[in-house]
Structure formats: C-alpha cells, structure tokens
Design a protein around this nucleic acid. Structure first.
Lengths: 349, 349
DNA sequence: GTGAAAGCGCTAACAT
DNA sequence: ATGTTAGCGCTTTCAC
C-alpha cells in the first residue's frame, strides 16, 4: 500500500516541477531505471556498455545537466569548496593562491565559492552561515581563525578546514603556511648583511604584518643595539601604491637619513620606489627597498624589487589536496605543512 | 494509510542521517511544526511573536544552520549567483566589478560563485556544466558569450544571464557594458587633440581589445591620412608590467620616433612608462602614454597615468540589481545598460 | 549489472 | 497564524 500511495503521487503531474529535464526522464528515454542512469553518469564502470551508451545518447539528446543541489542533498557531498579572503581586489598576495586553488579543485571536479571577510572582522558570522549552510566539502581560510565562536562553529559543522598563510600551534583542522616571525627576522638579517644600518619599516596593520614587523624590529635591535631608532609607519589595509607613496613620504620627512626600507607588501614597495625617484633618491644606492609577496610586477619594476616570495601556488595546491584527500576518506598523513618562504634578491636591495 | 507509511518510515532512525541539526529538530524543541520554524526563519512577519521567540531560542541553543542545498532544491531558489571571469589574478580590470558584485549580492542574501574561463575558451563546456548544475539564481559573464552552443545551453537552462563589459545587439538576456569602438575612437581623438601625430599601439589580443585597437586605428587614419604609419604590437593575455615593458621596448627599437602610446591596459602602460624611464625618455614630454582601466595604482604612478576609466563598481552593482530584481519576479525595466566610460586626464598624456 | 524503495532536509500548496 | 501533505531530483540501501 506504500507503493500504491507513492505511484499515485507520481502520476498526477506535479505543479511544483519546473519543467527542467531530470534524471528520471533521461532514464525513461534510455529505457533503464533512474538509478542505472545515475550510475552511468557517476560510476560508469559499474554499468554495462549497452546501458552506458543508451544513457549517454539520452543525455546528449536532452541536454541534461544533473542538479547538483539534489545530488548534494542526497549524497551529502556538495562538490563545492569555499574560500575566504580579506578582499578580492587586484594586487593582493592571496590571488595567486586563489587561482591555484580554483584550478586544482576544478581538476578534481570541485567548484570554488569565494567569500570576502573584509579586513575588519565584521559580518564574519553572516559569512560563516552562508558558507556552512551550503555544506561545502571543504573550507580554505586565509589566515587562521581567531575568534573562539568561529572556531567552535566550524568544528561543530564538521567541514574540513584548511587554514593558510600562517602557522599556529592550535589549528582548527589542517594548516598550510609559514612563520611570519621568521620572515621578519630573515629580512632584518638580510638588510644587515647588506651593510644597511638605518632601517625603517612600513607595513600593513593586520595581525600577521604586525608580527613580521615585531620580529624585524627585535632582530634589528639585536644587531644595532637596543636603543637604535627604527622609524615605522603602519598603513591601514588594503595597502596600495598610493598609501605606500604617502607613508614613505611621511617617513622621509621625519627621518631623512634612513638607508633601507622594509615594506609590508610589494605594492607599498612600488609606491615607495616611485616616491623615492620623484625625490631624486637613488634606489638602491641611497635606499635599499625590500617588499613582501613577489607579485607579478615586482621583477619588472626599475629597479627590480627584492622581496620575500611566498609560493601561493603551492599553498593553493596543498590546500586543495588536503580537502580532496579528506573527501576521498583517505587520511591525510601530515595535517600541517610549513611551506616556507624565500628572499628573492633583485636590484632594489 | 499514506500517512501511516510515512510515519513508519520516520520512526526508524534513518542510517543516512549525518547527525547534523535539522529544522525538524529545532521545531520539536520549539514545540511548533517544521513549517512554522521555516517561516520563523524565512518570513518572520508571518509568525506570531511567541512562536518566533521559541524558534529563535531553539536555533540559538542548537547552533542550527539551515541546509541551503535542501532549501534550494525545495524552493528552486539557490541564493547563489555565478560569475565567470577570464582570470582571478591581480591587476585585471574585472576585479573591481567582482568585488562590487560580491558586496551587492551579499546585501541581498546571495553568495557569489566564481569561475575562471581562462583567456582561451577551452573547457568552457565543463565550466558551464558546473555552473548550470548548481542552478544559480543568476549568472554574470565578463564579456559576451559568442559560442552558439554556449548561448543555447544558457538559454535552455532558464538562468538569468547578465553579460558585461561589452555591448552587443544580440544579448542572451541582460547586458551592462560599453562600446569598445567608442573607446578606441575617443582615445584617438584625445591624442590628436593633444597634438600627438606619431601614434603607436600596444594591446591585448582578446577580442574586445582588438575592437578598441581597430577603432583607434581607423580614427587615427582619418586624422592623419590613410597611409599613416601606426605601429602596433599585440600581447597575449594576461597583460603584465613585464609584457608591457618588453612590448614597448620592441616597438621603440623599430619605431624610435613615436610620440604617443595607446595601451590596452594600465598594467601594460605602467610597464611602458618604466621602460621609457629606463631609456631616458621623458613622459609626457617625449612620449604621451594612455592606459585603459584606471586601476588602483594608476593615479599614483609617476607621472600619473592618463587612462580610460570604466566604472566596474557600477557594472557590478547594476548586474546584481538585474539579478535580484529578476529573482523577485519584478520585471526589469531596461534590460540593456550602456555604462559608458570616461577619459581621466592625468600627467602622462 | 540492475532495480525498488526510502529517504536527504527543506518548502510550496493547500488546508484550517 | 499554524499545520498537513506531498513533493524538489537525486543517491543510498538492500535485494535480486
């Protein structure tokens, strides 16, 4: 009698149906059951050659495109991965990672959904709802999630999470990043080794940039003495060529004698180089400039920009791999990867 | 007896359930029916204050996040909008639009799903499948869809489509863009009005850039005579500072006497300015340079870059508005918007 | 290799 | 204002 009820329901042409082609129709055309059609599309090796061909013909004929909402609901695998970045604008260091992530995921049949957190942590709750609500098969965060509330919600959701661009002893789940402290230290050492002694810093005001700066200052003081002057300017995110120019102008007005400048991003460094040229300073003769990010234009500036390179492509690839492996049910051997960094020596420093 | 079957099925704790909190559980906790809980979340004005409070308490208590896959399947409104861009990398003119689109959509409760087409039209079919399969409530394309196959599939899908960054007499659905021909013409006029007579062009090789270039050349010839020399270089996408430098170097080696350069993007223009400075040319005294896009850095170059400004923010806002209005069932008054462009006069030309 | 039945979690459609 | 019922289109489960 259950089947009686069900078939009766199926008989009266539903008024909720929106006229799209469904798997059931493809199956009917192919002369097989819906489940066989489903298998022909998802696991063709489980289906006989004859059935396979008939289903494929029917798909071709109808232009059928599977409804992934329905598929995701039934299988609880949405084939969607979410990524959260501070901003989508040009000239941010994260874009290389996003590009790589998109490509790696597409290869495995996943689609990327991009969310903007904004540099201020406002609206984070709404963004998390929008993400969790779609039941993505993975979530990639730029930076680590600090709010306890956010961490709890993500953990409760059961979504595989990859935090990136940082290291932390307490990741939510998986992690691929590098040490910002070590970057600051390495840059201070680099400039010192080049004989620079009157260092200045301009940097973003986000938490990771601050940690690089702090480490830079600490190391510089250990080289130059605890009472060394280390002028610094913090620039609100997002950093731009313009904010770099202005910050450097201000720095120079107050401290005209500096001989090296450590910048929080290549974009700001480009601004500083422009401002220096306008003022008739020679880079690197009068002023060494070092950036962060190794963006696409950095090698083509004049002088070519010495900078800290982060392999965003590798971060994206690794994050994608973590998520795909997890989805496949395979355990991920190492859940934390330190991707490292390198100082790319060019003309500017 | 139908209900008998249904309740029997509901009784045996399903082994497919994945332990997440469902609306049914929230409703039970609140002591109301599932549909009332649903209304409390989606259309609170239809629910009594008492019920509303009880549902909200239950949501708070459980940390319930609605499953949007299920909701989308049931309502055929996915609250998802897809956008296709050639590339996600930094320094492309489209990012301003994407940012604006993301924000406008978020305000209306939609989430953006970003797809990369790549500059080559390969894999377009797979991308369309990935998009159509998720039944987005709208699709924003950068540029117009040319392939007949693609147009047909989109039309058959019934998804509201907004083509952008171009005008065409035959849009698939909705359109917000500007005339690339008029841009080319206007730039030729501008340089001519500034007294420049030995013009050169370097430009991307994508279809829209080619149309700008063609119009530029035609107008320049009408000013200078049909036999005027108009050296030009096409650069494969994506254009970068480096490709701009190299293209300009090549151009200059073959035609050292040019006095104005029209660039297909601000990024290439920045490269040309750098190369000019390296060679000791003065911009704009020896060479006028005009770009395209008015990217974030353009006003802060030295000299500040004269360029063609496209209001990407307006494009994104308009596209979002088109889609949201369509989803609300309201007819969109004007389905085609010419957003125009302007030449921003700065120091470089 | 193939299929019938029973959901996945939600909302539209009709009650009341 | 609230509830009942019947799906949305797919896949899992279990049986053959």
């Amino acid at each position: 009698m259950g089947s009686h009820t069900a078939s009766a329901a199926r008989d009266k042409r539903s008024r909720r149906s929106h006229g799209g082609i469904t798997l059931a129709e493809v199956a009917r055309l192919a002369g097989v059951s819906p489940i066989t059609a489903s298998r022909a599309l998802n696991t063709p090796e489980q289906v006989s050659a004859g059935a396979l061909q008939k289903v494929r013909d029917a798909v071709q004929l109808t232009g059928y495109v599977p409804n992934l909402l329905a598929g995701g609901l039934a299988s609880s695998r949405s084939r969607l991965v979410a990524a959260v970045v501070p901003a989508i604008g040009g000239g941010t260091v994260f874009m290389e990672m996003v590009q790589s992530l998109t490509e790696s995921l597409a290869t495995s049949g996943y689609q990327l959904m991009l969310g903007q957190s904004g540099y201020a942590q406002s609206r984070e709750d709404a963004l998390l709802d929008a993400i969790i609500g779609r039941r993505p098969d993975g979530l990639v965060l730029t930076g680590v999630m600090h709010s306890l509330q956010g961490r709890r919600r993500l953990q409760a959701s059961g979504i595989p999470v990859v935090e990136t661009w940082d290291l932390t002893p307490t990741p939510i789940d998986m992690l691929v990043g590098f040490s910002h402290e070590r970057v600051g230290t390495a840059v201070a050492d680099y400039l010192h080794a080049k004989g620079r002694r009157r260092l200045a810093i301009m940097s973003g005001d986000d938490e990771r940039a601050v940690r690089r700066t702090t480490a830079f200052v600490a190391r510089a003081r250990s080289h130059l003495g605890a009472d060394a002057t280390l002028p610094s300017v913090a620039v609100g995110a997002p950093s731009t060529v313009g904010s770099g120019r202005r910050a450097f102008a201000k720095l120079l007005d107050e401290h005209p004698d500096i001989d090296a400048l450590c910048c929080g991003s290549d974009v700001m460094a480009a601004g500083a180089i422009i401002e220096a040229q306008v003022r008739g300073m020679r880079v690197p003769a009068d002023l060494a400039v070092i950036g962060f990010g190794d963006l696409g234009f950095s090698a083509d500036l004049h002088p070519a920009l010495t900078t800290v390179r982060i392999d965003g492509t590798a971060i994206g690839r690794q994050a994608a791999s973590f998520i795909v492996e997890r989805a496949a049910g395979r355990g991920v051997a190492e859940r934390v990867v330190d991707i490292g960094f390198s100082i790319v020596e060019r003309a500017s420093a």
